[in-house]
Design a protein around this nucleic acid. Sequence first.
RNA 1: GCGAGAGUAGCUCAGUUGAUAGAGCUCCACCUUGCCAAGGUGGAGGUCGCGGGUUUGAGUCCCGUCUCUCGCUCCA
Length: 512
Amino acid sequence: MATQEDRLKDIIGHAKEYGFVFPSSEIYDGLSATYDYGQLGAELKNNIKNYWWKAMVQMHENIVGLDAAIFMAPQVWKASGHVDAFNDPLIDNKDSKKRYRADVLIEEHIEKIRQKNNKEVEKGQKRFGDAFNEHEFRTTNPTILRREEEITGIENRMRDALTNDKLDDLKLLIEELEIVCPLSGSKNWTDVKQFNLMFSTELGSVSGESSKIYLRPETAQGIFVNFLNVQKSGRMKIPFGIAQIGKAFRNEIVARQFIFRMREFEQMEMQFFVRPGEEGKWYEYWKDYRIKWHKALGFSENAYRFHDHIKLAHYAKAAADIEFDFPMGFKELEGIHSRGDFDLKQHEEFSGKKLRYFDPELNESYIPYVVETSVGLDRMFLAVLSQSYKDETLEDGTTRVVLSIPPALAPYKVAVLPLMKKDGMPELAREIIDGLKFDFNCQYDDKDNIGRRYRRQDAIGTPFAITVDQESLIDKTVTLRERDSMKQERVPIQDLYRIIDEKVNMRNLLVG
RNA sequence: GCGAGAGUAGCUCAGUUGAUAGAGCUCCACCUUGCCAAGGUGGAGGUCGCGGGUUUGAGUCCCGUCUCUCGCUCCA
């Protein structure tokens, strides 16, 4: 019995061996936690995107797509809260190995000084009794004044260091204040490092004339800033949604666990704009719709669970995750968030443009509320791959590795195999492919014996294999072999399209 | 950043006390076979992560360094 960790290793190895996922820049020893999708991975990824897009956009006449740029005006990230909320100066204590936010350490130190002053006030109160005037005491007592001055000095220096990115000064301050690690009690600190959630780059070719812009950390803001464009040009009526699939970038301190957490990743997001007061109804609707979308793939019901957030992000009113049973355990796969009017309101304020919707039914205009659904595409890919991967022992004692990928998502739908490489069988096989290739991704293989070729197709998740033999040349029938059951049946060549289409068409997933 | 582990053929790995770098699978060619990982013959493929040191001699011992993986700190 393989452990879960072994299982993940096997999947990673399998993904590499068959061209699903490669470590990035491998010939240069790789780049930490960065991966490239290979020939089969690109197919699988496209099919997942397609499934999502069809389910969200094509199946909902009030949802439309968008493809906003990765670069956006820097003010966008001020408005969204990303610039301020995710810029942390971090420092490590070398003895306890604990990491702290440098500004928090200093603030805690300041708080201690304040406590001392408070004690001083208490003492004064005891001494002077009813005649005690706290305001007068605080503004005249020399000890308190000295400490207040000290606090102001520290605060000014800290603010200066933070706003001007003077990280050395921040460390110096911590050393001068003789701040100790709460755990180890030591003053053995590393240098202060700035950990920004967002990657930045320079816009403009000449340095000095250039300006700093960010790589987007989520696709959602592209949707919000285009809210009016889409609403007006598409004559959208509330409730309506805007969907986007695209890359996002987050400078995670630790990016780990294969493609689960990467610094460059792809999101499939939909922002649904609703009338204020109706957000609860839609939040429930999307929770229900999204879990059905996942379950339609036919994996175990037990592989999914909801996790409701108790601690909410700065913008959220309610939030739930759909968690999936990955090889590393249950982890977040998708988030459904009720964002209220936070984002549009912020952009109204920062841009000075009205981002409102005139509701003819209510005869009033308002900032719509937003319900968001956001799936990690790479996580979805890992979910499909890990649930599909099976190391089977067959009745005859032999083993096979099979990827039971839902047929509609499989990279190749059908493999066509001439039993022998002679007597016109390869030619007939090619003919069959020519008839099917407009509708299905096909693969031709005439190498090695037939059993081996079946196993190869199992390993990449091809749902059907068609074998052309001597008889086929005479009566135009072939053997159709199904991946999961390994069952074979004799079918006329002219029926192939219908039989295959029935199984691999995405319609099967979309009808639920 | 800290701690632990790893790095030898495309993949999985072996390599003893320091003495000519190996196996299986894969890949290529040919022969045999023909519906579930067949057999045979031949062939390709390695600066043993990199750099020093010890030694007559280093994949192996010593020092340094790089990279990856796992754990911890962060997380919408």
